[in-house]
Design a protein around this nucleic acid. Structure first.
Lengths: 118, 118
DNA sequence: CGCTTCGGTCTCTAATGTAGACCAGGTCTC
DNA sequence: GAGACCTGGTCTACATTAGAGACCGAAGCG
C-alpha cells in the first residue's frame, strides 16, 4: 500500500483524486445520472475531466456506463457493487468535511496569522 | 459540498489528494514520524511534494510540526485530533484498496480487452 | 579539509488540468 | 429546406502543477 509499485497502491493512486471521489459521492447520493446531470452536480468539473474520471471509474469496475442509442444521445452512469462499496467509504469523508470545514478554516487563519511571510 | 465555491468543497479539494491521504494513513498507523521517515514510508513521494503536503496538513490544523533545534535538524510530524478524525476515515479506504485491488485489476483487464483501441 | 546527515529550497522540464471551440446527426422552428 | 438546438463527447491552446535533481547551512567525524 505504501510501496510505490504495489498493485493496491496503484489502484489507490488512480481513485484518490477529488473528481473521482465527488462523482462516487454524487452517484451514491443521487442514484444513476447522465453525463450532463453529473456535470451540473459536480460543480467546477470540466467535460474533459468528467469524461476522464468516468472512463477511469468504468475501467476499474466501479461504475457502469449505459448508452441509449437515441438522438440526442443519452448516457447513464451508475454505481456497480464494487463502486458502491468505495462510495460508502468515501461518503463519510464528505460528511466530515462539511462538519469540520469551519474548524479547518479557523486553523488556516491562525496559521496564516502566525506565518505572515509565507 | 458539490458547489465549487462552498467552503467545505474547498477544504475537501485541498485534502483529497493521494499524498495527503497516504501521509495521514501512515501517521495513524506508525505514530509520530520525522520527515525522512515519512519520505521512506510513503514510497515515491518527492521531498517537494512531501513538504508541500505536510505544510498543507499543518496549515489546516490536521498535523503538528515540531522542530528540535539540533544539528542535524530533527523535525517530527504528528496527528492533531482533527487530523486523527480524518485519518480514521481515510484508513478504511486504504484497507478497501488492499482488499479489492485484485478485483479492480481484473475489471481493468476485462475493460482493456473489450476496448482494444483506446 | 572534505564527506555525511537532515530538512528543506530552487530550478528546469514533463505531465496534467482548464477553458473553450468544434463535431455528429437527428429534431424543432421558421 | 435553412438554420438553431440538443447531447456527449473530442481537440486545441494555455496555465498550473508534479517530478527529478542540484544546492544549502551548520555541526560532526576522520
Amino acid at each position: 500500500m505504501f510501496a510505490r509499485l504495489c498493485p493496491s497502491r496503484e489502484v489507490f493512486a488512480e481513485l484518490a483524486d477529488k473528481w473521482s471521489m465527488l462523482i462516487l459521492m454524487d452517484l451514491l447520493a443521487c442514484g444513476p445520472q447522465r453525463f450532463s446531470e453529473l456535470q451540473r452536480a459536480v460543480g467546477g468539473v470540466s467535460r474533459k475531466m468528467l469524461t476522464q474520471s468516468l472512463r477511469n471509474l468504468e475501467r476499474n469496475g466501479l461504475v457502469l456506463r449505459t448508452v441509449f442509442p437515441e438522438t440526442p444521445p443519452r448516457v447513464v452512469y451508475d454505481l456497480l457493487p464494487l463502486g458502491r462499496e468505495l462510495a460508502e467509504l468515501v461518503d463519510p469523508i464528505g460528511r466530515w468535511t462539511e462538519r469540520r470545514a469551519e474548524r479547518v478554516m479557523a486553523a488556516r487563519e491562525e496559521f496564516d496569522a502566525a506565518h505572515p511571510g509565507g
